[in-house]
């Protein structure tokens, strides 16, 4: 059975100001696959997710990234999202003055418009948010509050997953989704993530710890150090890392 490549990263190099952070990164993710990227602090994990999503301040100095066969790096951040990439951020941004529901409605309709679908009216939109929100314990009180303002760590992450479930991306980058979560919140978030796995939806899970991978079981695990992948394996590699730490990979440098 041939696999359909979704994201193809070839020899990617990128820097922030004058500092090379990503140094020849290669990874192909096919439809339906879940890849975990593990690595020590400072390996450039967040830089990778920011480069893939087009954040300002990162300069790509070499290599290419194709998403569904299209050149990803030439797209604006919003077009990347509209094409189906979702970045669940380690620290979701607080936006005072913007009710969560207003923000969500703008996002849903921006993506629908891009795909020539009719925009949802307020009733249709609220119905969808209520249904998806129920599964994640996000109630209508929470979405009336300003976006992420005063939300606990767990609430912020649940809202990230809610966004993912209503925006229906084909590929998600989960950047340290487990940081700041207690075990109960981790379960809720993981269940939310797993509910999206339909055989086509793919993910890149970026994490320090193996803990999350007990709940969101990856097909592949990669060790990321000093700007590129230094080792790849299956889920057992994560367990090995948990035991031995990253010392041997960092030393290689």
């Amino acid at each position: 059975m041939s696999k359909t490549p979704l994201l193809e990263i070839e020899d990617l190099c990128a820097r922030v100001e004058d500092k090379e952070i990503i140094k020849g990164f290669n990874l192909t993710i096919n439809e339906g696959e879940v890849h975990a990227l593990m690595g020590p602090n400072g390996a450039g994990k967040s830089t990778l997710s920011n480069v893939l999503c087009g954040k300002k301040g990162y300069e790509v100095t070499g290599g290419s990234v194709r998403f569904k066969g299209k050149d990803l790096l030439s797209m604006s951040p919003e077009d990347r999202a509209r094409e189906g990439i979702f970045l669940s951020m380690q620290y979701p941004v607080e936006i005072p003055g913007v009710p969560t529901s207003t923000f969500l409605k703008h996002a849903v309709n921006a993506i629908r418009k891009y795909h020539n679908l009719p925009e949802l009216d307020t009733m249709e939109f609220l119905k969808m948010v209520r249904e998806e929100g129920r599964k994640l314990g996000v109630d209508s009180e929470m979405i009336k509050r300003p976006l992420n303002v005063g939300f606990s760590g767990g609430e912020k992450k649940r809202l990230e997953i809610l966004q993912m479930s209503i925006l229906k991306p084909s590929f998600a980058i989960m950047d340290e989704v487990d940081s700041g979560l207690d075990i109960d919140a981790l379960k809720v978030v993981s269940e939310g993530v797993n509910a999206l796995r339909d055989g086509k939806f793919s993910m890149l899970v970026i994490t320090h710890y193996q803990r999350l991978l007990n709940y969101v079981v990856p097909d592949f695990v990669h060790v990321y150090a000093d700007g590129h992948i230094v080792k790849s394996g299956n889920k057992d590699l994560a367990l090995e890392l948990e035991e031995k730490g990253y010392a041997e990979f960092v030393k290689e440098k």
Binding site: K55, A81, A107
Partner: peptide
């Protein structure tokens, strides 16, 4: 960037922030 990463266009995102301001 947060709003754009959710598919909201730059101009629309700016307007949302101005309204909020």
């Amino acid at each position: 960037f947060y709003m754009r990463s959710r598919g909201i266009g730059l101009e629309e995102a700016r307007q949302i922030l101005i309204d909020a301001y």
